[in-house]
Design a protein around this nucleic acid. Sequence first.
RNA 1: GUGGGCGUAGCUCAGCGGUAGAGUCCCUGACUGUGGAUCAGGAUGUCGUGGGUUCGAAUCCCAUCGCCCACCCCA
Length: 423
Amino acid sequence: MAGKYQSLRGFRDLLPGETEHWQRFEARAQRLLHAYGFREIRVPHLEATELFTRSVGEATDIVGKEMFTFEAGRDSVTLRPEMTAQVCRAYIQHGMDRLGLNRLSYIGPAFRKERPQKGRLRQFHQIGVELFGEASPEADAEVIALGMAIVTAAGVAGTKLLINSIGDSDTRPAFRDALLEALRPVAEQLCGDCQSRLERNPLRVLDCKKKKCQELSADAPAILDFLSEDARTHFDGVLANLEELGIEAVVEPRLVRGLDYYVRTTFEIRAEGLGSQDTVLGGGRYDGLVRALGGAQITGMGWAAGLERLFIAAGLDDQPVAPELDLYVVTLGPKARRMALPLVQALRAEGVSVSWDSSGHGLGGQMKRAGRSGARFAVLIGDDELSRGQATIKDLAGGGQSEGPIDALGLARWTRDQREREG
RNA sequence: GUGGGCGUAGCUCAGCGGUAGAGUCCCUGACUGUGGAUCAGGAUGUCGUGGGUUCGAAUCCCAUCGCCCACCCCA
């Protein structure tokens, strides 16, 4: 508990050892996204509040109590609680439907003002994709396949794909009424949360984890029975395509996603061992959203995954990455010290990763720093080495010592040879 | 917003009325040119903050802030 200032609740620093995990995942993810033909879009962190209230839904918790909203002069602005609405806004704003830009991906922070806990922070990070203008079952299957690949790329094993169709916006009211009719008589027996859900969003009662509520809603009508002919065909097509791709999907009729804009296909990928935070990726189809935000009638399908949760599910959260470096230059005496900076610069230009200590510590201190830097070899240069024209090179893992080149080009070649020898 | 747990050295934690401790890390030396092992020495704290009880409070009481975990909800 040192220092006067502390990061804000729900906001945290990513330190070296952890950032490497992020970099590795991001590199792998970008390769995958590229392989699927997606191109990255970067949208602002701040947006007009109305964009989110319109798209995510007034009644959702996100809009109701979790947004970081500020008054900026006459405008109300909000730190994005998710990115789909923004990507749609940008899609419309830049006329992307005419530019052939219909496969978009994003990665970055999002903000929700809720009580932090494991795998849930006020600033968290999402990676996601949006596929516009393709309403086919194949599109759904492809987007889901990409989601599975991303989760796998993060190193998560033991995933489970849950899928459902919540029908179209014009058939949902019928289901909602039927559901209400079935649940009203037993409303008293539902848990407190569900009683309020009954009014706000009855579909979510199906999603309640409490046993009693599940029993009470067991005999309630299933949404799949209310699908229109089109929606039913579409859903069957999605399932068939997933099977064709060898992706195992569990139809979960109780799966209801929280955001208002979803229609037809909804799905989540869950990871084992994460408790209530086990949904690592979630998404679905949102065919009416672009239109609702003022664009043309263009369909959409996408998902978002939480990076913090992915890393927890992959078991990476408590495994810091050790530093790696080719060389650490240790100098003795003023002559050697004067040539150190030009030397390390020349080595870097040759693609060798190298560090050194410019603060004038003694040999012991420098060796200690060399050991901690993660360097494979320490290159010792003192008066002896300068007169001999040979550097002393110490193997920091094995402890052995030998002579080696003292000039940049020679050292660079020597380093490359070592790398090759060690694979 | 609700419930529970915890705040003592950079880190992990012990102490639970009588002068603030351990391990680790850090610094110095044994080794006048060698890190990681060993040994010896050293440094480090408004004991989260404010108030109260007491001759005396890290310890008991009250308040407050912060963190963690869970619920709600979600990625």
